[in-house]
């Protein structure tokens, strides 16, 4: 998918993450801030990149502000932000691109 405009999903509540996606010319430009960066920084990066790949997002600037979200939450927030950037709100591909 293409990131057509800036969009975000999630909150700054504890155990959540706020994910913002913006258009980028070439490649993925990822920044991560997290309250658990020392213990889970690599894990967060891996989950976000995997989710983007699954959604076939090749070019995006992605910012993650994580407050200790579990992997399932991170995935859901990334998926939501990407679909919002495409203004897709209905008929989401559950069990397809969205897992």
């Amino acid at each position: 998918m293409e990131i057509k405009k800036a969009a975000s999903a999630g909150t700054l509540e504890s155990s959540d993450a706020q994910i913002t996606v913006e258009p980028n010319k070439k490649g993925i430009n990822l920044s991560i801030e997290s309250t658990v960066i020392n213990q889970y920084g690599k894990q967060i990066e891996k989950v976000v990149l995997e989710t983007l790949e699954r959604l076939d997002v090749k070019n995006a600037t992605v910012s993650v502000i994580d407050k200790g979200a579990l992997d399932c939450t991170l995935k859901a927030r990334v998926e939501c932000a990407v679909y919002r950037s495409n203004d897709i709100h209905d008929n989401l591909p559950w069990d397809g691109a969205i897992k």
Partner: peptide, 10 residues
């Protein structure tokens, strides 16, 4: 299983 095993703090 829920959170993943944490990396050891350096």
């Amino acid at each position: 299983k829920m959170a993943g095993a944490p990396d050891p703090v350096e």
